[in-house]
Design a protein around this nucleic acid. Structure first.
Lengths: 140, 140
DNA sequence: GGGGCGATGCAATGGTATTGCATTGTTTCA
DNA sequence: TGAAACAATGCAATACCATTGCATCGCCCC
């Protein structure tokens, strides 16, 4: 096939379509997490709603994970290979740069275990650091 | 004065007004963090915008801190006494219950230090756990 | 070829955050 | 005291993001 991304989609039980291949490609090319508006803009003139539903499908199937970085818009980034829809393994830290407003994944930095009273059942952990990223720091 | 909250406001350089005293009182009475809509509803028929600006003022002055729990609406909770506008010390964990949709502060649980490349300048840390809280667990 | 199902796209809606501006209330100073 | 100066309030309007309804399109299977 002309699109190597097809296998990726099929492996996640996602029917490959032209739109989905494009969205996946865009996500793979970017180092930072993308918002819905970002993807829409990078794709040129794609329909916002379709992109929205595409990302929702990707999220449900465990291909991407949502990042709430406090910028107002939810951002999306590709999951690690081991992620499943039921159990996201994206337990890494996200960094939101207040200067360039980019959110990046820091897979190398794991979230430490949080000691909680046993009555709490934790399903998801989100750790977002805000500050100035390495690139913006070096520029300034 | 009739309102013991007045001193609290004055200590934070906030001019005490009737509205602000009411908002502060509501925040003190609740154990969970409150969204703008929550405060509005608890106050009866207060103007949404005024509450919004009141909470913004409180945030700017270091009296409350914002919590982005992913519920779509920002929530607010009182700061620890040592907080200043420049340097919020609310480095505790927040827990968002997916069942009752309440967000609570867990001051007893500190955020562990995150090892980061030195090029990153961290200004703020946000750690939100999602799951089922102790109360909802015991009910179910 | 036709039925069925999923994907797409346009339109419309809902919810939250935010700004403009006029009014009200409070403080200050002559 | 009284009026200017400033802050706070409240209504209206706006912007933005997310989401749903519904009709259409396209593909796959029979």
């Amino acid at each position: 096939m002309a699109h190597p991304q097809e296998d990726t989609l099929i492996a996640k039980q996602i029917t490959p379509t032209a739109m989905r291949l494009l969205v996946l490609e865009v996500l793979q090319q970017q180092s930072a997490a993308l918002s819905l508006a970002d993807v829409e803009q990078l794709l040129g003139h794609a329909d916002r709603i379709t992109v929205h539903r595409t990302l929702k499908t990707f999220t449900d199937k465990g291909l991407v994970h949502r990042i709430e970085d406090g910028s107002g818009a939810v951002k999306f980034a590709l999951c690690e290979p081991g992620c499943t829809p039921e159990h996201h393994q994206d337990l890494h830290v996200h960094f939101f740069c207040t200067q360039c407003r980019e959110t990046s994944c820091l897979p190398a930095v794991a979230i430490p275990a949080i000691p909680l009273p046993s009555a709490f059942q934790v399903q998801e952990t989100s750790l977002v650091l805000k500050g100035v990223c390495a690139r913006c720091t070096s520029i300034a």
